[in-house]
Structures are given as structure tokens and as C-alpha cells.
Amino acid sequence: MSSVTVIGAGVVGLSVAHELAGSGHRVRVLADRPATASVSAVAAAIWFPHDVQRSAAVVDSSAVAYRRFRELAADPATGVHMRTGMVHVRRPDADLSWTRAVPDHEITPEGVRCTVPLIETGVYLSWLRDAVLAQGTPIRTHRVTSLGDVLPDTDAVVVAAGIGSAALLGDDEVYPIRGQVVRLANPGLTDWLTDEDNPDGLTYVVPRRDDVVCGGTGEVGDWNEVPDPRIEAAILRRVRALVPALEGQPVLSRAAGLRPARSTVRVERVPGHPGPVFACYGHGGAGVTLSWGDAARIAALVVS
């Protein structure tokens, strides 16, 4: 048993902490904000490898997370549900490698119809936090500005702080992709849809129990976390064109967040430190989708 400090309390950081504690390590989590205030809380959180390079490792981690979420969907307290929907495909060369991770999918003239996990982030992040705490892992709100302040007090460190990981590890490959959503009252929808190549802009409709998450945007390099009314109006035009039932539904809330993107997802040991340091970040818009798979990869690295 070793002591491991996980930096970051979003969906990736908490998943890593859960896997490490489950493997017998003594774990603590340090983060500058709680999970419910992280970019994870903004996500529509439909299982899908969005805004991330779809390497073989990414698809493998997606498959691991798919299976874990499917198991969690048996417990209503987790906020995880299996929902059917459509990934619209508009290009003949579209990358469909992700379908390898989905047991039951059907390729149609419109795209790919499949059943995937839908994660209600407000419920799920609270459940995951409580599950980590129940393992005896403390979660402390603390801004880490240097690994040198942490390493003397722990056997190993896992940097899983999303976009904040760049400063801690001097990684200039990390950049934000701004995402904006608007949440409407749900008129009774259950099926979700995504349309990444919509000529008018990225479009998705994700019905949850009490609302419908509508998006979106993918503004590379934009650090603005304040919702833009003009962008919201454009989102509403696109989603209502695809799903007329959303016409007239009231706006319940709105949000914007920064997807922590990178040229490739970074899951590895980082050399050059006085103690073992591991990276787990750069997930773009696929943090939830890759969470359990990459957490398992980190747990394997820590003991190797």
C-alpha cells in the first residue's frame, strides 16, 4: 500500500481516486474546486468520444467506461441511464472507430443508431464524490501551484486537473475548447442526437429526466466561461430545426465550460521529478467517456 495524491476533483480525478483506493492505496484528493463546479458539471455527458483524437487507446478506454456505466445504470442513485439515440453522419469518411466500443449499434443512411450511457452530471458527480469519501479518501479544496509542495508528503502524485494540468507539468500542448449549452424543459423526449458536422454548427440534443441539454460550440482557444446570448440563440435555432418539439420550451439554465484538449490524451508516468508523477488529462470533450478506462490505466501504472 502506498500513499497517492490525486490533483483534480472532476470526473477524471474522482474516477482515478476511486480506482486507486479500490486497489489498496491510501489516497487523498486536492482540487481548487469541487466536482459540481468543474467543467464536468457543464457537460451534456452522453457517452461519446467528442473532441478527442480517437486512437486505439482512446477507443479501448471508452469501451471500459461503457461497460462500467452500463453496470452503474442498474442503480438509480448513480444518475446513469442507458438511452438510445442517433449519431448523425454527414461525411463518407467519418471516423466510426468508436462503434467498436458499443455492443449494439446499427449503421443507417442517417448515421449510427445505438444505445449508450447517459450520465446526469449533477446526480452522478455527487454519487461519485460520496463513493470516494466512503472509501476513506479525503477530498480537500486546495489550489496546488507546484508539485514540489505535494511530493514530500506522498509516495506518488497523479495530475488529473483538466486544463489546470498544463501549468503544473509545463505542458504547452494543452488548450481550451469552449463549449456552451442551454438547458430547456423536457417536453417528453427520451432519444438523444448528435450532429457534429451540421453545416450550421455542432448540434446535440440530450434529454435528461428534468431537462434537455442543447448545444453546442467548439471554440478552440477561447477562455471565456460566460454564456453568450448570440451563441445561445444560434444553438436554439439549430436544435429546434432538428427537433421541432423543442419549439416554445422555456430555458431552465445555461452554462459554458472549457474542455481540456490536447494533441493526444496524456496517460503516462512523467519523468524528471523527485518522486513518481503520473499524468491523466487532455480528454477534450470525452472526460466522462474515458473516465473509468483511463482511471484503470493509471491504477495499473502506479503499481507497475
Rank of each mutant, 00 (worst) to 15 (best):
V132M: 04
P152S: 11
C114A: 15
A56R: 00
A77G: 13
V112Y: 10
P76W: 06
V64N: 01
G136V: 01
E110I: 10
I107Y: 02
A156M: 13
R140I: 11
V157Y: 10
Y124V: 10
A94R: 05
G136M: 06
Y124G: 09
D149F: 04
A65N: 11
G164W: 10
D93S: 03
P92A: 12
A94G: 04
M86W: 14
R91E: 13
P117V: 08
A131E: 11
A74W: 14
A166T: 12
P76D: 03
P92S: 09
I163A: 03
R113D: 09
T154D: 09
P152R: 04
R67P: 06
H142D: 09
L72Y: 00
P103Y: 08
Q53C: 09
V159K: 05
D130S: 10
L151D: 07
A65H: 02
T84A: 12
R90M: 08
V59G: 04
L125F: 10
G85N: 01
A56S: 00
V87Q: 05
P109V: 02
V132W: 07
A167W: 09
L147A: 06
G111R: 01
L133V: 15
L128P: 07
V87D: 03
A73R: 09
T154A: 08
I139L: 15
V123R: 15
G162K: 02
R100G: 06
R143F: 11
D95A: 01
L133G: 10
E71K: 03
L125Q: 03
M86H: 11
S126T: 15
G79H: 05
R100D: 05
I139F: 08
P109L: 03
H105I: 01
T99F: 06
R91F: 02
S165Q: 04
R129D: 02
D60A: 03
A77H: 15
C114F: 05
V112N: 04
W98E: 04
G164L: 14
L118I: 12
L118V: 12
P76E: 09
L96T: 04
R90Y: 14
S61E: 05
T137W: 07
A74Y: 12
V157H: 05
L96E: 01
R90D: 10
L96I: 02
L96D: 00
G136F: 04
V80G: 05
R140S: 06
A166R: 13
T108G: 09
S146Q: 06
I163L: 15
L118C: 10
S165R: 01
Q53E: 01
A65V: 06
T108Q: 13
